[in-house]
C-alpha cells in the first residue's frame, strides 16, 4: 500500500515536473516489464535487479509481470511504450529463437540492449539409467541408437536450442519431448520419463549430490565454482556456450544519454554485494556487459540461432 502511494506520488510529481532531463534521470518511477510469469528464473532475478536499481536511483522500480506466448506478449506491449527510459524490460535467448522460428517479428535489434546482467550456466544432465552414466557413454550410445535417447526440452525454446547445439557439435540425434520449464524437465528426469535434459544447479544440484542425476557437462568457457568436477564442453572437444543470459533493454528510439545513464546505474547495481549474493543464491551468475559488449554478444548468438533454426521449427 505504502509503495502504491509512493508510486502514485512519484507519478504526480513527474507529471508536474514535465519532461525529464537526461542528466538527472530517473526523476520518477521506472516500470520494469518482466515478460514472464511470477516465480520463474527471469522473475526472481529481475526482481532482485529491480530492487537494486530502486536503491541505486532512489526511485521505485515496480515489476510488472506480463506473461504469454514465451515472453512475446509482454515484449510486444513494451515495444509500444514511450521511449523515455521510464519503461524497461528484459530479454533472453528465447526472443531470438521465437524470431527465428517465426513466432514473433520482434528481435533483439527491435530494442536498445543496455546491459547483460545475469548469466545462468546450463548443465547437460543425465538420468540414472542402464545405458550410460557419462558424457562419452551417452554420445556412444546415441551414435549406436539414433533417436533412442529422449531429451526433455521446451520445444522451440532455449533448452531446445542448447540440445540442438549439442546434437550438431557431436553428430548425434535425440528424440525430443516437450516440457514447460526447468522444474518440469527435472521432475521427468528424476522419474525416468526422459533420459537427458538441460538443468541448472538450483533445480538439479541436490539431485546430483544425492546421486539421482548426473551432470555430464557444463556449457561455460571454464568449470564453475559450484560444480568443479563437471567438465566443460571445451574439455570434451567442442566449444559450446550454453547459458541463459538475461539483459535489460529499452524501447528503440530512447535518447542515447538516457540509455547511458541507465547503463551506468545498472553497472553500479551489479557491483552491489547484496544483489550479487542473492543472484548467486538463486542459481545464476551476476555479470555486467555494457551496451556495446552486449550487442556484440547478441549478434554472435543470432548467428548460432539462425544456423540451427531449421532443427527447432519442426
Amino acid at each position: 500500500m505504502f509503495r502504491k502511494i509512493a508510486v502514485a506520488a512519484g507519478l504526480m510529481a513527474a507529471a508536474i515536473a514535465g519532461p525529464a532531463q537526461a542528466q538527472d534521470y530517473p526523476t520518477k518511477p521506472i516500470e520494469f516489464i518482466v515478460p514472464w510469469g511470477p516465480g520463474g528464473g527471469s522473475d526472481t532475478q529481475m526482481r532482485l535487479v529491480a530492487q537494486g536499481l530502486a536503491e541505486e536511483t532512489g526511485q521505485a522500480v515496480p515489476v510488472i509481470n506480463m506473461p504469454g506466448v514465451g515472453g512475446n506478449v509482454g515484449l510486444a506491449e513494451f515495444a509500444k511504450r514511450p521511449a523515455d527510459g521510464y519503461t524497461i524490460s528484459q530479454i533472453h535467448e528465447g526472443l531470438l529463437i521465437s524470431n527465428g522460428t517465426g513466432i514473433t517479428d520482434l528481435n533483439w535489434d527491435s530494442f536498445m540492449p543496455i546491459a547483460l546482467v545475469t548469466s545462468s550456466p546450463q548443465y547437460l544432465t543425465l538420468s540414472k539409467n542402464d545405458n550410460f552414466s557419462t558424457f562419452e557413454e551417452m554420445v556412444a550410445y546415441a551414435k549406436d541408437h539414433p533417436g533412442a535417447v529422449r531429451a526433455g526440452v521446451t520445444l522451440a525454446g532455449v533448452p531446445h536450442l542448447h540440445m540442438a547445439m549439442i546434437e550438431d557439435a557431436f553428430g548425434i540425434q535425440f528424440s525430443y519431448v516437450g516440457y514447460e520449464g526447468t522444474g518440469q524437465r527435472i521432475r521427468a528426469l528424476v522419474g525416468g520419463n526422459i533420459d537427458v535434459a538441460i538443468g541448472d544447479v538450483s533445480s538439479a544440484g541436490q539431485f546430483v549430490e544425492n546421486g539421482d542425476l548426473i551432470f555430464a557437462a557444463v556449457g561455460m568457457p571454464e568449470r564453475t565454482a559450484e560444480e568443479p568436477d563437471v567438465r566443460t564442453f571445451k574439455e570434451l572437444g567442442q566449444d559450446l556456450d550454453l547459458a541463459v543470459t538475461r539483459g535489460v533493454v529499452l524501447p528503440k528510439g530512447t535518447p542515447q544519454d538516457v540509455a547511458d545513464a541507465l547503463e551506468a546505474h545498472l553497472e553500479k547495481v551489479m557491483q552491489n554485494e547484496d544483489v550479487r549474493t542473492k543472484i548467486k543464491n538463486v542459481g545464476s551468475e551476476p555479470v555486467f556487459l555494457g551496451q556495446d559488449a552486449y550487442k556484440a554478444y547478441l549478434g554472435k548468438l543470432s548467428d548460432t540461432v539462425n544456423r540451427l533454426v531449421g532443427k527447432l521449427a519442426g
Binding site: T44, V201, G205, Q206, E209, N210, N281, V282
Partner: peptide, 15 residues
C-alpha cells in the same frame, strides 16, 4: 521456493 533460494537455501531432495 524463490523466497527460500534468495536467502541461499537450496531447495531440493536434501532440504
Amino acid at each position: 521456493m524463490a523466497a527460500l533460494m534468495v536467502h541461499g537455501i537450496s531447495v531440493g531432495p536434501r532440504l
